[in-house]
């Protein structure tokens, strides 16, 4: 039979500190590694909705309404020009511009202010480009057709951008 330990006896426990130096070394290596392998870039996103492959293209609520007309506005990006096509009037039926984004914006602003009230979907535009056009140019055009800046004031042009599936 074991004796019961004396209750009077007390063992002094020495305070021990964990050795943090190896963890510190790890941190010192990890943080610069993460920082150097990354680039500080703030990302943005351009939202595009594709029509479903199967099923109706027109939603039940969006059936043609009598007395209204569907706006068909499109931009074709070729290697040396922008071509704006629309069904608003003969004046804006086909406009060919040199590749200047500010010119494009001005013409689109003119079209935006001219659109008669009986047109539906006044904010949508379709963009099509020819093969060989770089993605950056497409993004520049998308950015330009959404908003125009006039006297430090942003005016919305055609924010609902659609990309045509075809290639010129």
């Amino acid at each position: 039979m074991a004796y019961k330990p004396s209750q009077r006896r007390s063992i002094e426990t020495l305070p021990t500190e964990p050795n943090l130096t190896p963890i510190m070394n790890l941190m010192v290596v990890l943080i610069p590694l993460l920082l150097s392998s990354a680039e500080f870039v703030k990302l943005g996103a351009i939202e595009l909705n594709l029509p479903p492959v199967v099923g109706p293209l027109v939603e039940p609520g969006a059936l043609p309404v009598e007395g209204t007309k569907h706006l068909e506005l499109s931009i074709f990006i070729t290697k040396d020009s922008f071509v704006i096509n629309s069904n608003i009037s003969t004046e804006f039926e086909r406009i060919k511009l040199k590749q200047s984004l500010s010119d494009l914006q001005e013409h689109l602003y003119e079209i935006k202010t001219y659109i008669p009230p009986y047109f539906r979907e006044k904010e949508s535009i379709t963009i099509q480009a020819s093969a060989g056009i770089k993605y950056q140019k497409l993004i520049d055009v998308i950015e330009s057709v959404r908003v125009i800046k006039i006297k430090n004031e942003e005016i919305e042009l055609f924010p609902d951008v659609k990309l045509s599936a075809g290639v010129l």
Partner: peptide, 12 residues
């Protein structure tokens, strides 16, 4: 492939 909601990422 039924991914219709497309977001094109751009650097600001």
């Amino acid at each position: 492939a039924k991914y219709h909601n497309i977001h094109l990422a751009v650097a600001n």
